[in-house]
């Protein structure tokens, strides 16, 4: 584990990714304590104040400090994306490994159905689910998780298919171990590396998808300072106060880049032979 971390941090992508993520984690943990203002503090004299010494990133249409809102809003954006990805990846991984374990026609049937489900674009699936479950951040997390599962299942299954043919799995089958034991104790741990890489990259999609749902008005609800919601709010005043738009956009992009970099770095660190 430590060796992996050292290898990861020695690569430029890994280093930059981890540094950015440390910053984002700080904002999630200590954001409300460190923020210079309260995120809901209205200051009518400071409406649309340009970035400067009073408001480092400027102020919005109510004179609320954008930096403070971003720092507090990290909590309602990043952890949600993480939870959704974790849940979606876990479900997808179990389907994928299970399908590879069963093999043959059942595997074929499961994967064809899985591919069919993927014909519904992720955003559309999430929108349909949220419109049924009701608007709100919690339901958006469930929707994103379900939208992610089929993609994860496909990736995991292709890895698990090779593992299924390894001698240790055949040995476990010959010993008469139960299906659950083989799936969870023999196959899943050995498929872990690609699952982790894929999920890390997917967190960045989850951040974007989650922000998009809030932007469309079905995710986090006002007055939350969720980043996608902040972009949606600022759009009306984008000519007067472009900083209101650019700051949360940059926050979303930085988070997405950070998880992308970490995923790429992990891939390189876990497969040292593959030089590309």
């Amino acid at each position: 584990m430590t060796e992996l971390f050292v290898r990861l941090i020695r690569r430029p992508q890994g280093f930059v990714g981890i540094a950015l993520l440390a910053l984002i984690a700080m904002a999630c943990l200590f954001g409300p304590a460190l923020a210079p203002y309260a995120p809901e503090k209205i200051d009518f004299l400071g409406r649309f104040r340009a970035p400067g010494w009073q408001n480092w990133l400027g102020a919005d249409q109510f004179g609320r400090d954008i930096l403070s809102r971003l720092m507090v809003g990290a909590r309602s954006t990043v952890p949600m994306a993480l939870i959704a990805t974790l849940a979606g990846s876990a479900a997808g991984a179990i389907i994928g490994v299970g399908s590879a374990y069963l093999g043959g026609r059942i595997d074929e049937a499961i994967m064809r159905t899985n591919d069919a489900v993927m014909a519904i674009p992720g955003l559309l699936m999430a929108l349909l689910l949220v419109s049924t479950l009701g608007n709100g951040a919690g339901n958006a997390v469930i929707a994103v998780a379900i939208a992610f599962a089929p993609g994860m299942a496909r990736v995991t299954r292709s890895v698990a298919l090779n593992i299924r043919n390894q001698d240790y799995v055949k040995a476990a089958v010959a010993r008469g171990e139960s299906a659950a034991w083989i799936i969870f104790r023999e196959m899943l741990p050995n498929a872990m590396a690609p699952i982790v890489i894929e999920s890390t990259i997917r967190v960045s999609f989850a951040v974007m998808l989650f922000a998009t749902l809030s932007f469309l008005g079905v995710g986090a609800q006002p007055p939350a300072s969720e980043w996608g919601l902040m972009v949606a709010d600022a759009r009306q005043y984008m000519y007067q106060a472009p900083w209101g738009l650019i700051a949360p956009s940059a926050a979303i992009a930085l988070t997405a880049v950070a998880f992308n970099l970490l995923g790429d770095g992990l891939r390189d660190a876990l497969n040292p032979k593959d030089e590309r």
Binding site: S204, M208, L209, A211, T212, F215, G228, V231, A232, R235, M238, Y239, P242, L245, I246, S249, I252, A253, A256, V257, N260
Partner: peptide
Amino acid sequence: SLPEFVTATLLAL
């Protein structure tokens, strides 16, 4: 790394 709504809004701006 940019969601569509951000790219769209920034280009429109």
